[in-house]
Design a protein around this nucleic acid. Structure first.
Lengths: 231, 231
DNA sequence: CCCAATTTGTTCGTATGTATC
DNA sequence: AGATACATACGAACAAATTGG
């Protein structure tokens, strides 16, 4: 950071770091691992290889933050309290701002679960896909903080849904109301009506929270893994 | 994680990990460093020492997440959009829930900046302390996610304020309105009036945002003038 | 206060894997 | 196909820190 290195730039080779700091290879390598674990650098072997500055990607940041909440006892209530605050804000923010291509992308997500699920596996996939709607929507926000937080919370919920099998037994009510709210929301976004978009999203959150609570409030006692990831 | 180890429990010694995985000492140590960088373990030398499972602490989680936003270039607008959504929710949530001791703790924070600052250094400290009010308030929330997010955003703002010297020149208006809003908020929290608490906090956020944006504009102008860059 | 045992921390030399030219 | 320039891995030795006798 103090050197002002940008993503893609190469750090000095192991050999030169050894010389520069007067330390042994093992020590230097441990230091590099510390940076690598944080997602700040990546290393490549071979000629032209080396250690390179890396822009921390969302997946890594979310996984690292997930480690923190592995030890906290998050409830469905906790997560939805935050979602109820953030999601309507996002909806209002994006109303009238989306291109036709973006609106079509959102429609495509909805269409992936507008038909009733035939079995438990499909039910699970639709559950995850309906949370993916929010991740896709957040992706369209110009606010990196809001975007990250909404995708992170949706991801946690997706994790809980999959690992705790909250999709089983099938909840037709949750499925139907979710599709209805998201369709209404899409219309409001297209119309550019921020107030309606905010209200619909707020109702959507409150409704989903109640239905999820009914499926049973459960804590996250698990690392975020690839399973159930939205990206 | 798969072994179900809890914070405080000891991992196998380096020697046994070397034997168990059939790898060299350096390789095992790099693996441990990866866990340590994430805040998941800590290691101690000496007899009775070793590598221990560690509950990821908030500071570490915030620092790791901060690495992500180091590359995302957040604006004052971005941060306040999230604060405007989350802080009123927290205020409403805590109304009527705080003990006398907690209310007094909040009063103590406010009192640290209710007298006008004498110089720039004091001005800076008061700026930071007024953000600390929100961190202390969030600490009292039973929602770990909401608590973390509010403390994280307040921390980012505190950093921006200090590194970009947003406290200079002194802004008497920001200082006075901040104290007034926080005092009103405290009264509402004591009265247990969630609606008023939410509204006061919302107003506080909107006001603070406007004033911060004005400070930012001042800083930008000063920067451009100092550099002699005109366009 | 010192010594011995235990465990992580560091060093150095060597060998291997991998990607590029 | 082979030389080269990197990171990766190994193993043995030594250093430092901590605890208990």
């Amino acid at each position: 950071m103090t050197e002002g290195w940008q993503p893609g730039e190469r750090l000095p080779s192991e050999a030169s770091l050894i010389a520069r700091f007067g330390m042994a290879k093992g020590t230097i390598r441990e230091a590099i691992r510390i940076l690598e674990a944080q997602g700040l650098v990546r290393s490549r072997t071979g000629p032209g290889g080396g250690v390179f500055v890396n822009e921390v990607v969302e997946e890594r940041a979310a996984a690292l933050l997930g480690n923190y909440f592995y030890f906290q006892k998050l409830t469905i209530d906790d997560i939805y309290q935050v979602r109820e605050a953030l999601e309507p804000e996002l909806a209002a923010n994006l109303a009238g701002q989306l291109s036709d291509a973006q609106l079509q992308a959102l429609e495509a997500v909805i269409s992936s679960y507008e038909a009733p699920a035939a079995n438990a596996e499909e039910e699970r996939d639709q559950h995850v896909a309906s949370l993916r709607f929010h991740a896709v929507l957040a992706e369209m926000s110009g606010n990196p903080l809001l975007r990250f937080l909404i995708r992170f919370t949706a991801n946690i919920l997706s994790e809980i849904t999959v690992t705790r099998r909250l999709y089983d037994p099938p909840n037709h009510e949750l499925w139907a109301s979710g599709v209805a709210y998201q369709s209404q929301l899409l219309a409001a976004l297209r119309d550019g009506d921020a107030t309606v978009a905010r209200d619909v999203m707020r109702q959507h959150m409150r409704s989903a929270k109640q239905l999820m609570l009914r499926q049973e409030a459960v804590v996250t006692q698990r690392f975020l893994t690839e399973k159930g990831k939205l990206w």
